[in-house]
Design a protein around this nucleic acid. Sequence first.
DNA 1: GCCGTTTTCGGCCCGACTGTTTTCAGTCG
Length: 574
Amino acid sequence: MNNADVAAALAEVAELLELKNESGFRIRAYENAAKALSNQTEDVRSLVATGGLVKIKGIGSGIARTIEELLSTGHIVYLDQLRSEFPEGVRRLMSVPGVGPSLARRVYVELGVTNLDEFRVAAEDGRLASLPGLGEKSAQNVLRAMERVNKQESRVSIGKAVPLVEELMDALKDVPGLDNLVPGGSLRRWAPTIGDIDIMGTSTDATVAMGCLVSLPQVRQVLSHGHTKSTIITDNGLQVDFRIVEAEAYGSLVQHFTGSRDHNIELREFALSRGQSLNEYGIQDVKSGTRMSFSDETSFYAALDLELIPPELREGRGEISAARARRLPNLVTLGDIRGDLHVHTEWSDGTLPIEAMVDAARQRGYEYMCITDHSGGIGVAGGLSEERILQQIDAVHEVAGASSDIHVLMGSEVDIRRDGSLDFPDQILERLDWVVASVHSGFNQPEEQMTQRIIRAMENPHVDAIGHPTGRLIGKREPYAVDMEAVFAAAARTRTALEINSFPERLDLVDVHARRAKDLGVMLVINTDAHAPIHLDNIRYGVAMARRGWAEPANVLNTKTFGDLCDWLKRDGP
DNA sequence: GCCGTTTTCGGCCCGACTGTTTTCAGTCG
């Protein structure tokens, strides 16, 4: 039973309360508690033990008791009661876009529908359309939405979304009268996965511009089409929301549409406490009714006496109080990165020779880079034997000697075996400039074992960093069970860096982990794990994740100059 | 159910669009 399990139980309570048409405020309380818990890196069990649970904003005494009940008995009596009122499938009906708690409840109560299959039949045979207040269009919309769900056109990784949006933005350039186009939402916040794309702009004639947008050739389906807001599905299955306002309100529009929901709610609550009401058109003084418009975000936040909050921080995780106190972090930027310390070549599972990868790093203006091919334990990745890595050491040194404009380091991504020992003996590791240790097997080990395995690797004085520390693959593999608090403590103690792996499918560490690591004094390192030159460009995703984790340049190892990096590498081991 | 730099009670973000309606509830972001 970990934080995610408990959060899921609380979220289920919220969903069932929605079905019951309970007070929206109670529902939000459970939703907020679930979210607050999943933003915690400290294990819920230790939070209970130390009494830290109620100190978390959004968890009060009531929900704290519920969590304790779940941990001690494995059940929440209240949740079991709620479950007995609605078959499991009824809750699932709400996963269909456009189907909320009201409709789900009605089709269950009035039509006896208990799952998605029965729902489809009811939509097809006319029973859904026959309900008072509904009609044929509603039924058709349900059927089309179910089709989309089946095609799994839901969330995509940011690595897929960014190129698609860049392509779409290019197509939008020619829409007449449309200016200042910019993507917003989770994409602008660089969230690891994107549900739908938000695109904002200004126009003197929004109606005409909207008409052009919804009739673009890329549009497969129009979900809604209004004067200032439209929603479409593109031919590659992406949902795109367009929002247009007049130029004078552009600042508040961009702010409004960058979100997140939690950030916006907290910001509006904060504004209300100051007697101001916020919306996408500006700020209204509640008493006098005076309205202010903002053409840029800086002046919008300034009108609330707040520093400009970078989009990556707008997740409702304390950024508003930090902005009030003028204590926002000075976030690391792409330009701060001086080198890539996790790069593969054809010596293991990369595609190109050492020289080509060095060249690619050179072209990106790096001061240094490190070759880190796999060790032999990774059979499928063509890992190097001891004999082969000794040869590669010579090969890399040769390339390094011939490179005057970039420092080329020789390293390894050494496999952490199931018992925490490493795939190369110390006599080899000590000859390397840089060692990334990673888990590539035995993902199903119990948490205690996995935690000790990683800590043991960190205790090896030759290990400089842990690669992709939680092992997750977005949409494919959950993170392995590991006590991250213990990993952070060991990383701080052994002065081992933790990687933010920039591969869009990994993005590991994730933001909340990166932030916790930073707070505990753990050094981060942003690497691409490149297997081909183009992968080096993924660094932007890793930097974005670091920014979402509130990281400053001083928290990121590869912002150091080569000289400072060398000094760091000479640090004392455990 | 949670929360408090006016509050331990009385609040709790805000607006656009749709479908089926003659005025609004539901859903979404």
